[in-house]
Amino acid sequence: MSPAISIRGLRKSFTLHLRGGVRLDALRGVDLDVQAGECVVLRGPSGAGKSSLMRCVYGNYGADSGSLLIRDSGAEIDMASASPRQVTALRRDTIGYVSQFLRVIPRVSTRDVVAEPMLARGVAPDTARGRAEAMLARLNIPSRLFDLPPATFSGGEQQRVNIARVFAAGFPILLLDEPTASLDDANRAVVIALIREARDSGAAILAILHDPVAREAVASRVFELEPGTSLPEAA
């Protein structure tokens, strides 16, 4: 079977027009395949483009050149040239992304934040909320917090809500950017178990994991990224 993710010659640079047109090269010709049932961990020093690569796969950053084929129930779609509507459909059905920070939606309860990707696929509201609660409970979010918006939660709690949102829906391709970064040992173990279960049931996973315990526990292999030019700090 063809890889779930197949990247060839991927280049990504940023032209900073407000800084005199300075060009920063983030990715200079990346080739990488990720198979179903495999967890590839990206490694490289800060500024090597790990997060940029992940954001290109998710369509959050636009590629300059190269191809980025995503297998989507039989068909292959090139994320590098996909239309916004194709990207939206891929994100709904195929690619789940755990970013480093939860982007909080005002006033929406934690339960509904987690249920939302399922609701977007047309899962019945009661079923979606039930699955959301089960996943939150597994990640040790107390049920008294389910009705509250996650805006006031601690960093570790928000990160677990972010993880619950993606793992409750289930995706054949998972992009995980430091999913264990601010978790204690007990919660890290839960997240490691979730990643292993997803991998063993056939998900293709691309992960950034600085934590050696988590990396050792889930990585099928490690992919080294060479440092490009340094990237600007996030605005």
Binding site: T15, H17, R55, G59, N60, Y61, G62, P84, V87, T88
Partner: peptide, 13 residues
């Protein structure tokens, strides 16, 4: 373009 790409990776000055 897609909302998050336009806001996170804007191209035009």
């Amino acid at each position: 373009g897609l909302t998050d790409r336009l806001l996170d990776d804007p191209r035009e000055p």
